[in-house]
């Protein structure tokens, strides 16, 4: 069974847990899954084992606390320490997949919006003019911002497992919203502030959408071949 199939089985099996055990287990799940760069296969296999164990203990009248103790965070850290690291190859493939998909969406949305605003609202031009040098610089810096964004969100989610005090939902929402807005703002700021350098070229705006579609298909192919997500 590959990781994807195990995750599906896990989703199904989790429904058998009592409310109390589910809360305990889902914190473990979140914390362990978000630990960085560990083998996904091993991670999912052990997560399913823990789940099966709780389910069986539950049938015999013992709770998750009885099985894993009062300090699940420390237990999870022990466990994570023993999970093998993900291979470099898979890490690179996975990053490539995320980057391609991200670029695909940006290119596609850019192309379609430019096309629609020009042909239907008579705004802008059907050509997009940009400098190759600054274009590449923008893509690289924005990818870095994306990386930081994902890394920070992961860490933040991870720290939200095993809360000492449950935070109010709306406070959480506000925090994520503010952080996302800031990131998107930073994103656009880079595009505006980047000075022009390198050769300037003009291409039809709609061709961005085509590039987006091609990148998307590429990303899907990588995913399908390697079963990443």
């Amino acid at each position: 069974m590959n990781a994807k199939e195990i995750i599906e089985l896990n989703n199904e099996k989790r429904k058998e847990l009592t409310e109390e055990n589910l809360a305990y287990y889902e914190d473990m799940l979140l914390y362990i899954r978000l630990s960085s760069a560990r083998s996904e296969q091993y991670t999912e296999e052990v997560l399913l084992e823990l789940l099966e164990h709780i389910i069986q203990a539950q049938e015999e009248g013992r709770s998750a606390v009885d099985v894993f103790g009062n300090n699940p965070k420390e237990y999870c850290q022990d466990l994570i320490g023993e999970i093998p690291k993900e291979t470099r190859k898979r890490q690179v493939r996975f990053s490539t997949y995320i980057i391609l998909q991200f670029l695909a969406i940006i290119a596609f949305v850019n192309g379609v919006i430019g096309f629609v605003t020009y042909y239907f609202f008579d705004l802008g031009s059907d050509l997009t003019t940009f400098s190759i040098g600054s274009g590449i610089a923008i893509v690289i810096i924005d990818l870095l911002i994306l990386y930081l964004f994902i890394a920070i969100i992961f860490r933040w989610l991870r720290n939200s497992a095993f809360p000492k005090k449950k935070q109010k939902k709306w406070v959480e929402f506000l925090q994520i919203w503010a952080f996302s807005t800031l990131s998107i703002g930073l994103f656009i700021l880079v595009i505006y502030l980047m000075p022009d350098f390198g050769t300037t070229i003009s291409i039809p705006t709609i061709s961005f959408a085509a590039v987006g579609v091609i990148l998307y298909i590429l990303a899907k192919m990588i995913n399908k071949k390697r079963n990443l997500i």
Binding site: I6, D66, V67, G69, L79, E82, I83
Partner: peptide, 22 residues
Amino acid sequence: SEGSIYPILLRLQKEKLIHGEM
């Protein structure tokens, strides 16, 4: 404690002393 076997099972797998199969 019941849970303490899982870190050990992972270590034994990493050291290739045991092999797990679904």
